[in-house]
């Protein structure tokens, strides 16, 4: 990076720089240690104990981690969120990228109106978003029975065990596509027009400009969005939790690993095992993210 090179020649500043660097980052460091490091370490500490109602809390070493490895509920949940990741991340980002490209090249007033509209769901708390979709998924009260009958087909049963996967994908797509779209759109906007103006004059189609020039230039943003989306999906929690109120037998309390951790801690009074589940999930998320960042190392911009 530029400034590192520049600074390399100024060794004598290092001591002073050292001090000021820490001064500027100190407030964050304090917050970071107090609200992240300490609770996390505490959670890890808790995961080394086992609590049973009768004998209370006992040190049990890695016994909880052994239990996680063979825990069917955890395994199922993990498999499910991986499946969600495989389906949801490409849909969200594909849609976001497509819309961003469309809006970038379509400079009409209607485009800026659409941009706000698409971004709007991000302003709505996930709790309320899921609540609204839950109502709309209702077979008798929601609009879909009518909408689908206009096309002569029967509306799917959104809240059945077959339909719930798609229903949840839809809620998340609705909520987050706009956010990723804005990030990608911002990136597109900051590409100097000269870069593709000449190609345009040479008669290249918009599609070609998009795939050959624009998309390669926003790869960094695209990867960043993918990482966010990946992390978010593996931690899937709020939307299924809210929809569970509507369909408790379709979405069991251990549907995703995060929900399982929540049920263990709050429903079954197994705080210690819950900490183990959360910790294992965190570890898996970190591993996934590192693999992904390694795979895309050259263009993700996250290295230093």
């Amino acid at each position: 990076m530029n400034q590192t090179k520049a600074l390399r020649g100024k060794r004598k500043h290092y001591g002073k720089e050292n001090l000021w660097g820490w001064i500027f980052t100190a407030p964050f460091a304090v917050v970071f240690v107090v609200f992240l490091v300490i609770p996390l370490v505490y959670a890890f500490y808790m995961s080394l104990f086992t609590y049973t109602q009768i004998s209370g809390e006992r040190f049990s070493g890695i016994a909880n981690y052994v239990r996680v490895l063979t825990d069917e509920a955890f395994g199922k949940g993990l498999l499910l969120v991986v499946l969600y990741t495989i389906v949801m991340v490409p849909i969200q980002l594909g849609l976001a990228l497509g819309l961003a490209l469309l809006l970038d090249s379509f400079k009409k007033k209607f485009a800026s109106v659409s941009r706000v509209v698409i971004f709007l769901p991000y302003a709505i708390p996930a709790v309320i978003g899921a609540l609204m979709w839950g109502f709309m998924y209702s077979k008798l009260m929601g609009p879909f029975t009518t909408i689908f009958s206009l096309f002569g087909v029967q509306a799917p049963d959104f809240l059945s065990s077959n339909g719930i996967f798609g229903s949840l994908v839809n809620v998340v797509t609705w909520q987050w596509t706009g956010y990723y779209m804005i990030i990608l759109y911002s990136a597109l906007q900051s590409i100097p027009t000269e870069l593709y103006e000449s190609a345009r004059i040479d008669g290249a189609s918009e599609l070609k400009i998009a795939t050959r020039i624009k998309i390669p230039l926003v790869t960094g943003s695209l990867i960043m969005c993918t990482i966010f989306s990946l992390i978010g999906t593996l931690q899937f929690f709020t939307e299924p939790t809210i929809l569970r109120n509507q369909a408790p037998t379709v979405i069991p309390s251990e549907y995703t690993p995060n929900m399982y951790a929540q049920a263990l801690a709050f429903g079954y009074n197994q705080t210690n095992y819950s900490a183990t589940v959360s910790f294992s999930l965190g570890l898996i998320v970190v591993i996934f993210s590192i693999i992904f960042m390694r795979l895309t190392r050259r263009s993700n911009g996250l290295g230093d």
Binding site: F32, F35, L36, I38, P39, L40, Y42, A43, M46, I231, Q235, F237, N258, A261, Q262, A265, T271, S274, A275, S278, F279, L281, G282, V285, V286, S289, L302, D304
Partner: peptide, 22 residues
């Protein structure tokens, strides 16, 4: 800085209960 980036990946549930107890 790398630790900070790692922090983005930690599930909230892992932190909520210990934070509450502390």
């Amino acid at each position: 800085f790398n630790i900070i980036l790692g922090a983005l990946m930690i599930p909230a549930t892992a932190l909520v209960i210990p934070t509450f107890l502390l």
